[in-house]
Write a protein that binds this DNA or RNA. Structure first.
Lengths: 116, 116
DNA sequence: TCAATATATGAATAACTGTTCATATATTAG
DNA sequence: CTAATATATGAACAGTTATTCATATATTGA
């Protein structure tokens, strides 16, 4: 505690930071969710799904890459609650899990000043 | 185009997905920003900074780890526009870059049903 | 100027992640 | 049932990333 000789309000903030730190488990879940949407290929999938639900090969068309790679990415996105899937005959249709996902994307784009 | 035999609306969605896909450069920037906040250690830093600006060693106290590791993480967060820093004497005080950052965190937590 | 404190960084290693390839499973048409 | 189409997955390799260690830079007080 000999470090940081600035005002008392910062000391208090430091204490609050410790007491208000979320549980390790919640931190890990949030981190995993962000990691899921932190690769260009997976982000492209999400941007593609803004248009509505798409089958796997349509997603492959939209984002490029191989069917296998896209399928692996979809599994990761689904495992982290970013997208959901439903089977319709031979096809599996993917879509964004809920409105939070699109909201986060739009916030991020606003933050980075890119108009999408 | 022989795949995916479902309704016409999905075909149209697929076409729109291609035409409305953001530029590679924007995709990369968004991905990098999410990657920056996708590691537990860096997320803890952000949660700590909810309380206001903190010097490096207070952050180290709040999140654990070594000073060196935290400093590396802070550099990454700053390089991606997630946090900002200002020097005050011997200390460098870090804070969340703007209100978008907190908003994204809160949205993510709401999505995952964790109350923080 | 010298010592002490705070912060930053280069290099190396260890751990993690994405892609590819081959193949497996699932569904439907014939 | 068989063939064809759509989707999923295990294993291995390649590329990336986080941490550590040692050290460098910056600021202040004596």
């Amino acid at each position: 505690m000999t470090f940081c000789n600035h005002e008392e309000e910062h000391e208090l903030a430091s204490q609050r930071a410790r007491t208000n730190m979320p549980a390790e488990e919640d931190i890990a879940r949030v981190a995993a969710a962000f990691k899921a949407i932190s690769e260009p290929c997976r982000l492209k999938i999400l941007f593609a799904l803004r248009q509505g639900e798409l089958c796997v090969l349509h997603i492959v068309e939209a984002v490029g890459g191989t069917q296998s790679a896209v399928s692996h990415q979809l599994r990761l996105l689904k495992a982290n609650g970013i997208v959901k899937a439903r089977r319709e005959g031979q096809n599996v249709l993917y879509s964004l899990d809920d409105e939070h996902v699109l909201a986060v994307l739009e916030l991020a784009c606003a933050h980075l000043h890119c108009h999408i």
